[in-house]
Simulated assay, not measured.
Amino acid sequence: MKKLINDPADVVAEALKGMAAAHPDLLRVDHEQRIVYRADAPVQGKVGLVSGGGSGHEPLHGGFVGPGMLDAACAGEVFTSPVPDQMMAATRGVDGGVGVLHIVKNYTGDVMNFEMAAEMAAAETGVEVVAVVTNDDVAVQDSLYTAGRRGVGGTVLVEKIAGAAADEGRDLAGVADVARRVNDGARSMGMALTSCTVPAAGRPTFDLGEDEIEIGIGIHGEPGRRRVPAAPAREVAEMIMEPILADLDFTGDDGVIAFVNGMGGTPLIELYVVYNEVATILAKAGVSVARSLVGPYITSLEMAGCSVTLLKVDDELLRLWDAPVKTPGLRWRA
């Protein structure tokens, strides 16, 4: 195992110290609870947005804390859910008096712990909490980690668009409705060229042969739909796009946000090769692209591979997508 770390047990704590040192204008970090807050939280009169999950997926979630996106993110150990006490503390810490939205990826531990935190926060502080669970992964219906589809790349789009809705002053029900609409209109599929190595484990999460790739992989190394021989980007894009386009009708006048995500170990030049293939497939399918996003935004440590997310949009969702955002991991018009 070759990694730029000190002690595997200290990776998350030291990474959070690095985030705080790198972005003091944007972030405030509770190192004891391992919570990343936007520097001005809580913002009075604004719905607070809290998300979180296991570390190792950076910039998700802590890199998306700031104006226009999340108010707080809870950091678990690598690929391990945060605990309810963290989530409850974050909920209290972002409560501006009008309620808090939890954005939760559909993994069993995350869902259970966020539910417990919401109940605890309501009982102890009276804050109103609504949860939206993301489940955009078309690769599987069920896995060892989920009941139903997993929350993957669509989570980034939910956090951005719901964050814009909260920043423009919508109430809790309105922000939650936007988040659900984004999740309902998003579909994702991923693939892996290589495994990744969790620092505490010191060995690859799974084995792939030199001439094998995994189609439909999860962000924690969960098995995909099938293992196939290595193939050119054109064929890989077709294998990813076919189940996405089969699952939802993306045709229409308003188009889609097309998001090609890197899993952590794939260079940007390759992601643009994949995006070119995705754009060609969409054009042939009669799907117009309204906006695009290309880069490593929800990663799996150093896994080589990519995922594609399509979001069916309308004028309102596009306006919220285009709204200013200022976070370490995503920034425009700010």
Rank of each mutant, 00 (worst) to 15 (best):
R291H: 09
L320R: 08
G163V: 00
A290M: 05
D25M: 10
D167K: 02
N113H: 14
A121H: 13
D249L: 10
I35V: 15
L301T: 00
V140R: 14
V50E: 10
N261D: 12
G109P: 01
D211F: 02
L311W: 03
T309V: 06
V133M: 04
V313K: 03
D171M: 09
V36F: 09
D247R: 07
N106A: 11
D71H: 12
M87Y: 05
V130D: 08
R181K: 12
T125E: 13
G190L: 13
E302W: 04
D136A: 07
G66T: 12
R187D: 02
I219D: 01
A323Y: 05
A285I: 04
P82D: 01
E277D: 15
L317K: 06
L144N: 09
I103H: 05
D254T: 10
A164E: 02
V175E: 01
A165Q: 01
G163F: 00
A279P: 06
A121G: 09
R227L: 05
A41K: 04
A201W: 11
Q141G: 10
R234D: 15
R226S: 12
V175T: 03
M88C: 11
R225L: 13
G329P: 02
G62V: 12
E222K: 11
E128A: 14
E14K: 13
R234S: 15
P232V: 15
E212R: 09
G218I: 07
R92P: 06
G93V: 14
V182C: 03
V83L: 07
N6S: 14
R149M: 01
I298F: 12
E238M: 11
H220A: 02
